[in-house]
């Protein structure tokens, strides 16, 4: 797809301002003139954040499903009352979904279910938030970064487990890089252009919307901290978020977008961390498991 056509597809109606309030218009349906695009492609055109900021090859392929939401309460408080009144409905499903992650038996199916349920409310909230960016983008970005920093501290204090805290740092560091990049490069209009139906279809594909799954998992973990959930559950959710988001990172890298969870990390820190994780693996993997690994090693390819 050429650049101008993609931009045309991404175009959204202008934000209508009325006496200081902001009204959110529904996102336009994207029209296809030639053939049916894949669900993932459609989801990207409608909803991806970082992809739009990058080059045209990236824009149509990376399945993200990301929403500019992490701390729902903080974000909600920043919205003007008039705007909140228009989207009050988003609160209940988000609260219920996060509660499920805290209390129900954790499984891939549960994560898929909650991510699917939260997709529309989160994207609606995200769209509302993006509209604030028209007035001061730096303020919006700074507020989001403050949320990330505060959440990282909250999780670290709650868990008292260096492994889980490290993993949470990776997850929140990756989100910081992602949001920082997106909010620096992407036009707010593009961020708010969301095709809900395409996203819902994409949710049915295993490799699509990993970002949303990871994001929902870390939101569940943070919500768990705030609601005094068990530390095991919070740790599990952090691990799940990590595994989802590291896949997302790899998908971006495949497309040439090199996001890092720790952009300021030095070589020395990387080596030190490698040694630390090697030490942890020695505690986690038994000799018997390594023997099984040896038996399963790659030999000949045919």
């Amino acid at each position: 797809m050429d650049h101008s056509r993609r931009l045309a597809l991404l175009k959204r109606p202008p934000i209508q301002r009325q006496r200081g309030s902001v009204r959110i218009e529904p996102a336009p349906r994207t029209k296809r003139s030639n053939g049916r695009k894949s669900d993932i492609e459609q989801a990207c055109v409608g909803a991806s954040l970082v992809t739009i900021a990058m080059n045209s090859a990236v824009a149509t392929t990376a399945p993200t499903g990301a929403a500019l939401v992490l701390d729902v309460d903080a974000l909600w408080a920043r919205l003007p009352a008039a705007l909140r009144a228009q989207i009050t409905w988003v609160q209940a499903p988000i609260t219920e979904g996060l509660q499920k992650l805290r209390t129900a038996t954790l499984s891939d199916d549960l994560l898929d279910e909650v991510a699917g349920t939260l997709m529309r409310p989160l994207q609606t909230l995200s769209r509302a938030y993006v509209n604030l960016m028209a007035s001061n983008r730096d303020e919006v970005r700074a507020a989001l970064m403050a949320d990330l920093e505060r959440d990282a501290q909250l999780v670290q204090d709650y868990l008292n487990d260096p492994d889980a805290a490290d993993t949470a740092k990776w997850v929140l560091g990756f989100l910081r890089s992602f949001f920082g990049t997106v909010l620096t490069l992407v036009e707010p209009g593009h961020l708010a252009d969301i095709d809900f139906d395409a996203m819902e279809k994409a949710m049915n594909k295993p490799d699509a919307c990993s970002f949303l799954r990871g994001q929902v998992a870390i939101m569940g973990a943070i919500d768990g901290v705030k609601n005094d959930a068990s530390k095991e559950r919070v740790t599990e959710l952090i691990d799940i978020a990590f595994l989802q988001l590291i896949d997302v990172r790899d998908q971006f890298r495949k497309l040439g977008v090199w996001l890092s969870a720790f952009p300021d990390e030095t070589s020395e820190q990387r080596r030190r961390d490698a040694l630390r994780y090697a030490g942890r693996l020695r505690e986690l993997v038994t000799d018997e498991e390594w023997q099984a690994f040896d038996r399963a090693r790659l030999g000949n390819l045919r």
């Binding site: 990776w170 595994l243 990387r270 994780y277 942890r280 693996l281």
Partner: peptide, 20 residues
Amino acid sequence: QNLQRKGRRTLVTLRQFLDR
């Protein structure tokens, strides 16, 4: 191992190690 529901934490740690 992870698909067999034994070792999500190990998988996370291994990926962190390999990442460095």
